[in-house]
Design a binder for these strands. Sequence first.
DNA 1: CCTAACTGTTGCAGTGAGTGTAACATTTAT
DNA 2: ATAAATGTTACACTCACTGCAACAGTTAGG
Lengths: 138, 138
Amino acid sequence: MSASLKLSTAVKAVHCLAQVYPDALSSAEISEMTGINASQLRLILSMLAKAGIIHSKQGAGGGFILNMTPDQINLQQLYCAIETQKAFHLAVNRNHDQIPVNKKINAFFLDLFEAIQRDIESKMETITLSDVIEKVKQ
Amino acid sequence: MSASLKLSTAVKAVHCLAQVYPDALSSAEISEMTGINASQLRLILSMLAKAGIIHSKQGAGGGFILNMTPDQINLQQLYCAIETQKAFHLAVNRNHDQIPVNKKINAFFLDLFEAIQRDIESKMETITLSDVIEKVKQ
DNA sequence: CCTAACTGTTGCAGTGAGTGTAACATTTAT
DNA sequence: ATAAATGTTACACTCACTGCAACAGTTAGG
């Protein structure tokens, strides 16, 4: 799953959790509400649980509960929690890295792409779940 | 080819052209210098030619010549010339757009991703081919 | 302690996109 | 004419992604 897709999945899930707080929702219930496959949701939600953003309760009567208030959760946190590959998928052709000029140009781009990545992350830091909830209400 | 890969290919090619300016280089010669497949180079270079960044001369003794000075060429121009898909590949799950909340959250993300895209492009506007040449010399 | 209801994780089939390359059409200098 | 280029299309191949299912692990409740 792409980073952006995972992020939007995560936001939809925590948005559901915010609606029923402080009650729990099972992955099946969130699947019902969002149309997203329950297995997929569990994958994402287990990562959010490891990051401490939500709490997961296994066993009968279990489910997922928000562990922070919506204004304490920002997109950067969600993104970090689910990130397995960077959002701006930064690829340079390393096939011919033995050519000195290529090596330098590749290094140049890797630096640039890292800078862009940082910009994206700091932008996402300014957006909270509260902001999303507000937008959905409008 | 991903946007970032195409961009680095384009930069390597125009970097070669800058070295020999005002002489021309054929795609075969650039392929020799960079290790990048000649067909691939022609694909990228023909797009740069359409954008007016380089000049292409068909026929015997032809090739590609820089059409601007290195300080007049910035990464944003190159990126625009070769762009077929946006760099930050912005995907939200539209599968379940009939659910009103999903529709709103998806719209929210599409707006966010467009803003990020604009940020990336304005950043690339500040970097010229001269800057790259300088970095390679170091 | 046994069952049912959950989460957590792995695996897998299908498909679709990206990669690298060749081939050929088109153009032009000599 | 011919040879040397660009411009464009097509194609085989791989490989990552998607969506889903299955099952292993965990826990509440009778």
